[in-house]
Simulated assay, not measured.
Amino acid sequence: MGIVGSTIKPFKNTAFQAGKDFFDVTEADIAGKWAVFFFYPADFTFVCPTELEDLGEQYETLQGLGVEVYGVSTDTHFSHKAWHDTSEKISKIKYAFLGDQNHTLTNNFGVLREGVGLADRATFVVDPDGVIQLVEITPEGVGRNATELVRKIKAAKYWREHPGQVCPAKWEEGGETLAPSLDLVGKL
């Protein structure tokens, strides 16, 4: 089975989130909710803070959609706190960072770089049933776009809430959807 449509595996990781004590996050904490697991190679690096800041700028929008966000690297929760306390970009972020020094999550999601010990640059969107609905993996030198991630999440939520309807390319909230049928075959 491919990763899209598979169910997340059990995990327990310690998180850092600005303004809170360290806390543990497990698969039970996301049950019944939408969640984004936003993997990146390492704290104190180059492309990563630009992506994490971009995602942070969409955090309020994602929260309004009922989506929780977790930044994940193979660093510790202590490293995440230190980076938050010393980086202008990272200090603005309000979502949680999960430490994955034991590589549980990176292995569960299949994004651990063998022989390197770092996570690939990867995004996973998990639905309220714990099923992975969206995946994006880019090479280390290519940053992701949080605005496009929000669009894809809105489409995934719409598709889940409206059986029989699908969202075409470039679909935006409120846009036309399609009802797949024999009548549409060869007409699009």
Rank of each mutant, 00 (worst) to 15 (best):
M1C: 10
M1A: 12
G2V: 14
S6Y: 02
S6A: 13
I8T: 02
K9S: 12
F11E: 00
F11D: 00
F16S: 10
F16I: 05
A18Y: 04
D21G: 08
F23H: 14
V25Y: 05
T26I: 06
E27N: 14
A28F: 03
D29M: 10
I30T: 07
A31S: 15
K33Q: 12
W34Y: 14
A35S: 15
V36Y: 00
V36P: 00
F37D: 09
F38A: 10
F39I: 00
Y40E: 05
P41V: 00
D43K: 01
T45C: 11
F46N: 11
V47C: 07
C48E: 02
L52Y: 01
D54L: 12
G56W: 07
T61D: 15
T61S: 12
L62K: 05
L62E: 04
L62N: 04
Q63M: 15
V67E: 07
V67F: 07
E68R: 12
E68K: 13
S73T: 00
S73R: 00
D75F: 11
T76V: 05
H77F: 15
F78M: 05
S79T: 14
S79R: 09
H80A: 14
K81Q: 14
K81D: 04
A82N: 11
W83E: 02
W83G: 02
W83D: 01
H84K: 09
D85I: 00
D85R: 02
S87G: 12
E88D: 15
K89A: 14
I90G: 03
I93Q: 05
I93G: 02
K94F: 01
K94M: 12
Y95K: 03
Y95W: 05
A96F: 06
A96S: 14
F97N: 09
G99F: 03
G99Q: 08
D100R: 01
H103M: 06
H103G: 01
T104N: 13
L105Q: 02
T106N: 09
N108C: 05
F109R: 07
L112D: 03
E114G: 00
L118V: 13
A119L: 01
D120F: 05
R121A: 09
R121V: 06
A122T: 15
A122N: 10
T123I: 15
T123P: 06
F124C: 09
P128C: 11
D129T: 15
G130I: 09
V131K: 07
I132W: 04
E136H: 13
I137M: 04
T138G: 01
T138L: 13
P139M: 04
E140R: 10
E140V: 14
N145T: 11
N145A: 07
A146V: 11
T147H: 15
T147M: 09
L149P: 04
V150P: 10
R151L: 10
K152D: 07
K152I: 11
I153G: 01
A155W: 04
K157R: 14
K157A: 01
K157D: 03
W159I: 15
R160N: 08
E161R: 05
H162Y: 06
P168L: 03
K170V: 12
K170L: 14
W171P: 01
E173F: 10
E173K: 14
G174P: 01
E176Q: 13
T177S: 13
T177C: 11
T177P: 08
A179H: 03
P180D: 09
S181Y: 10
L182P: 03
D183F: 14
D183G: 11
L184Y: 09
V185G: 06
G186L: 06
K187S: 13
